[in-house]
Simulated scan of single mutants.
Amino acid sequence: MHNIIDSYKGGRYLLRWALVEIHPAVLDAETGDELAPAIYGPSCPDAPLDVFAAEPEEIEAVLAENAEVRALAVAALPPAEPIIVRDFDAEGNLVAEREVIPEPPAAPVVPLAELKAAAVDLINARVGELRADHITVTVGQSATYLEKQDEAARHAAGDSGPFPYLSAEAIATGSSLDEVAALVGATATAWTAVNADLEGKRRAAVEAVKAAESPVQVYQACTHLRA
C-alpha cells in the first residue's frame, strides 16, 4: 500500500497503477466451484507517463486512477485484528481496557511545498537539457560563446580586430574570417530566439507551480515545456 506512489520523489515520470490478478482463483477440479478467490494486487503494467510530453488531462487522469487503486488496495486488505488498549491511573493500576480496531494504512502524502520545490528543480533541469540540444553546455563554454558573438558583432560593424576566437575557428575549419563571422552572427541570432522561447516556457512553468493548489496542478505545470 505504501509503495503506491505517483512518482519517485517528484520525478518526471508518473507511474500508472492498476489492480491486476496476482494469483488466479482456486477451483474445485470436479465441480468447478471456487475454493479460494483470485488475489489482486497493485502493479504498473503500462509505461509511465512523461509529464513533459503529456497533456494536462492525461496527468489528471493518471493521478485519479492511482488514487482509485490506492483506495481499492486498502479495501482489499484483510480486516485488522483488534488490539487491547489499557488505561492506568497515576499509581499504575489498571482502570479500564477496551478493544480498538487499527486504522488502515494511510496513503503516502508528499507535502505540497516539497512537491513544488522538486517540480521547480525538475523544470530547471529539463530546460537545461533542452538548451543542450542547441549549444555545448560545459565549463567556460558560455563565456566563449559570448566572446565569439561580440567579435562577430564588431566584425559586422567594420571593426578591424583583432578577432582571436574567429581567427582560431577560421584556421580550424579552413574558412575565411568573413565566413566564420557571418556564421557566428547567424547562429547567435537563431539561438537567441530559441533561448527566449525556452526561458518563456520555463518562467510560465515555474509560475504555474507557485500558483498550484494541488499535486495535480503541480504536475500539470510541467506541461508548459511541451514542444
Rank of each mutant, 00 (worst) to 15 (best):
R12Y: 04
N66C: 00
A153I: 14
A170Q: 07
A113H: 12
Q217A: 15
I22R: 10
N3I: 09
Y165T: 12
L49Q: 01
L177D: 09
P111M: 07
P56F: 01
E60H: 02
V184E: 07
K201N: 03
F88Q: 01
P37Y: 07
I123M: 05
G32D: 01
S176D: 03
I123R: 06
L94K: 05
K148A: 14
H23A: 12
V85W: 05
R226H: 04
L72D: 15
L122G: 04
V51Q: 13
E213Y: 00
A211E: 06
E91A: 10
W17F: 05
E91P: 00
V62L: 09
S142A: 13
D89H: 00
N3W: 15
D178H: 07
A208N: 06
D6S: 05
L198C: 05
A53C: 06
F52M: 10
L130F: 13
G200A: 03
V95L: 04
E68G: 11
G174H: 11
L94H: 01
D150Y: 11
A73K: 05
Q220H: 05
R126W: 13
A113V: 06
A53I: 01
L19I: 10
T144L: 13
R126N: 13
L115I: 06
F52H: 02
V109E: 07
A61R: 11
A186E: 08
L15E: 05
A211C: 06
K9Q: 12
D87K: 12
T136R: 15
A188T: 15
A227D: 12
A143I: 01
M1H: 04
A212R: 10
Q149C: 04
I4C: 10
E30T: 08
V184M: 02
L130S: 02
A143F: 09
D50F: 08
I84Y: 09
E207V: 03
N93V: 04
V206R: 09
E21Y: 11
V120W: 01
H134A: 13
A18T: 01
Q141L: 07
E30H: 09
A212V: 11
E34L: 01
I5L: 05
L72A: 15
V209A: 04
L72M: 14
E129Q: 15
L166D: 02
I171P: 00
P108M: 11
L177C: 03
A157R: 14
G92C: 03
K201V: 08
V51A: 09
A152G: 09
A54T: 08
E114H: 08
D121Q: 13
E169D: 04
D197N: 14
L183M: 12
V95D: 00
Q220K: 09
V216L: 07
V20L: 12
H224C: 08
E199P: 00
P82M: 11
A156F: 04
Y8K: 14
A119T: 15
H23T: 06
D197F: 10
V109P: 03
H155W: 15
Q149I: 12
N3Y: 15
P82N: 09
G10N: 01
K201I: 03
G161A: 05
E114Q: 13
F88H: 09
V137F: 06
A113S: 15
